[in-house]
Design a protein around this nucleic acid. Structure first.
Lengths: 193, 193
DNA sequence: GAAAAAATGAACATAATGTTCACTTCATCA
DNA sequence: TGATGAAGTGAACATTATGTTCATTTTTTC
């Protein structure tokens, strides 16, 4: 196992433990135990506890992002692609138990303003994916010629709001309905008549 | 609210918090927060953290015991009473979420040997209840004339084993079947032909 | 079997937490 | 109302727990 694989293993173990106990209540040693190593050894791979947390969360967010990106890359119709992007992104957390728990314990992971975003780079990449789909729709003459950057920001904010409502505040069922309704409206609003 | 009621409130809050985080990871301040008081004030009611834990668990165990005792006291038929005692005792933890979690985190609450039993007094009282039902069955000529003390100890051990299997190791469904089977055999074994 | 890489565990500094207590606030009753 | 005791507070302190480092040992590589 090379260093990169080992780091992956470390981040995934760390995320599980942080999910179980929350940041403050997990000790570095808990994570070392989960990995079957000593904390001294763990420190050969990470700078400090905070760093480990951020890397573990980042890793989790990147998994999410990668899964969504892969699942839409081969979709020909740009409307279908847009719908898939939104739906896959939105439902992902229902499967990733650890990341969901961590998010519940630490809602600051999803920033209210991008100014205070610890994971700005990852969020930016997610927005880029969204932007590229919107741009494609316009380029292909399917979507109206709106301001892509502003729309990306708007839709991303709505998307984040839905995720928080659904998984952090767990207003489950009715929010999911709202999501589908909102998605329908947005797509209709986007389409050229 | 008098002192005793306040102590009850404290023990119940403490049990909830200990259930949530486990003994080591709960801070005295977490419990004070749950109660809406300062930890300084909490210390006017308990000696120290360990004491609070033991009192909280004791209180939980006594609730259990009291519930079972009340639910069988008015049963006329001693066989029915015996069955109810076993069943009520066995199923109680499926409802008491906090006590169950605490037990899962700290299985030493249920002792392997009565030598190392932190809650010996409570367990003794529970055994007394069982013993009194067995004695009544014999007195009324329904049960065979076995040695009551030894049988009490034996049945109590089996009972504890079932509780651990069911709630700590959560070997749920099949264990419940085993319990009903075992209960049937024991009752048949007890009855005079 | 020498050199490099990985891992250990003890040591240390610091932060977190348990515990105490002088002081403040609140309730009771003359 | 204001004296008196009970209840509660929050800062201070002692101790423990935990994060972090590093000299040493073990394992791997060639």
């Amino acid at each position: 196992m090379n260093r990169e694989e080992k780091l992956t293993r470390i981040y995934e173990a760390a995320l599980r433990v942080f999910a179980r106990y929350g940041y403050r209540r997990t000790r570095v040693e808990d994570i070392a135990d989960e990995l079957g190593m000593t904390k001294g050894n763990l420190y050969l791979y990470v700078k400090d506890k905070r760093d480990l947390y951020e890397k573990a969360v980042s890793h989790g967010l990147l998994q999410w992002q990668g899964m969504v990106a892969r699942s839409i890359e081969k979709i020909d119709d740009v409307c279908e692609q847009f719908l898939a992007l939104c739906r896959k992104g939105y439902t992902y957390l229902s499967r990733d138990v650890s990341l969901r728990s961590v998010l519940i314990n630490d809602p600051s992971i999803f920033p209210l303003s991008s100014r205070e975003d610890q994971f700005a780079e990852i969020n930016r990449a997610s927005m880029d994916l969204l932007r590229s789909v919107l741009a494609r729709g316009i380029r292909e003459g399917r979507f109206r010629e709106v301001d892509v950057d502003h729309l990306t920001e708007l839709l991303y904010s709505i998307y984040v709001m839905f995720i928080i409502k659904t998984y952090v505040k767990s207003e489950g069922k009715s929010t999911q309905k709202m999501f589908e309704q909102g998605l329908d409206i947005v797509l209709q609003g986007l389409l050229k008549k």
